[in-house]
């Protein structure tokens, strides 16, 4: 599903290399976790895949199915089935959450040549999905992420993901700023979307999220490279010993 080969990325305006040859494949139906110390380049990887400006790919490639991600605009990547749940969801005053979501859902449908959802149809779908995430009508009406608590913002990201039904979901530190209850809600939302045709790349600093969202494969990232990959036990190892041991073992 997602294939990343030898990806090198630097800052566009600075001579600063951030990703130094990432190789990563997430097959459909699997959940891969990426763990690593702060500053190792996890968010950068997610941004570059989603198409954020400010970065320059100096080498390598990234495909979603047979779509060359690096060759197309962010909105085209989304329509192709890529979704990024942001580490820091953005506030957009004056634009209703619902308006935003309907615009997004219909823009993607249009790009894929599908019929747009009517207001009524859309409302029916979103109400059901919002309920599962304990998002009330009031939160749907409010401007996008404005005045939302940390947990509400993250739940709102999962709601977007559920509405957009992407093929490949990247979650960047979705657990940060969540208390235990919110973590459960968010994890349930993610687990409900697990599907043989869908892949997940779950970026996290801590192991605890992976107790709820069980990964098939865990990758450890440091210094812009994946330095170790393994099964779920690798996450436990990080939890117990920290990153230091693994870093030393590879250096």
């Amino acid at each position: 599903m997602l294939t990343i080969k030898n990806l090198h990325v630097k800052l566009e305006d600075e001579d600063k290399q951030i990703l130094r040859g990432i190789d990563l494949t997430v097959p459909a139906g699997e959940v891969h976790a990426v763990m690593g110390p702060n500053g190792s380049g996890k968010s950068t990887l997610s941004y570059v895949l989603a198409g954020r400006g400010g970065y320059e790919v100096t080498e390598g490639e990234a495909h979603l199915g047979d779509v060359d991600l690096l060759d197309i605009e962010p909105e085209e990547r989304a329509a192709a089935g890529l979704f990024l749940a942001f580490q820091y969801p953005v506030e957009i005053p004056g634009v209703g959450n619902m308006t935003f979501l309907r615009t997004a859902v219909n823009a993607q449908r249009k790009a894929r040549g599908e019929e747009e959802l009517s207001a009524g149809e859309f409302l029916k779908v979103i109400r059901a999905k919002a309920k599962d995430l304990k998002i009330d009508a009031e939160m749907l009406k409010r401007p996008v992420n404005v005045g939302f608590s940390g947990g509400e913002k993250k739940r709102n990201e999962i709601l977007q993901m559920a509405m957009l039904e992407p093929k490949m979901c990247i979650l960047d530190e979705t657990d940060s700023g969540l208390d235990v209850d919110a973590m459960k809600l968010v994890s349930e939302g993610v687990n409900a979307l697990r599907d043989p045709n869908r892949g997940f790349l779950v970026i996290t600093h801590y192991q605890r999220l992976l107790d709820h969202i069980k990964p098939d494969v865990v990758h450890i990232m440091a210094g812009g490279r994946i330095i170790k990959s393994g099964g779920p036990e690798l996450a436990i190892e990080v939890e117990v010993n920290g990153y230091a041991d693994i870093l030393e073992g590879t250096s």
């Binding site: 989603a50 400006g53 605009e73 962010p74 957009i92 005053p93 004056g94 634009v95 823009a107």
Partner: peptide
């Protein structure tokens, strides 16, 4: 904000309009 909207599949032009509406609100 523009990238956030575009990452949800909203084309650049429409995303810009939404941000203009946000600004005018």
């Amino acid at each position: 904000a523009l990238f956030y909207l575009r990452s949800r599949g909203v084309p650049k032009r429409v995303a810009t309009d939404l941000l203009v509406l946000s600004f005018m609100a």
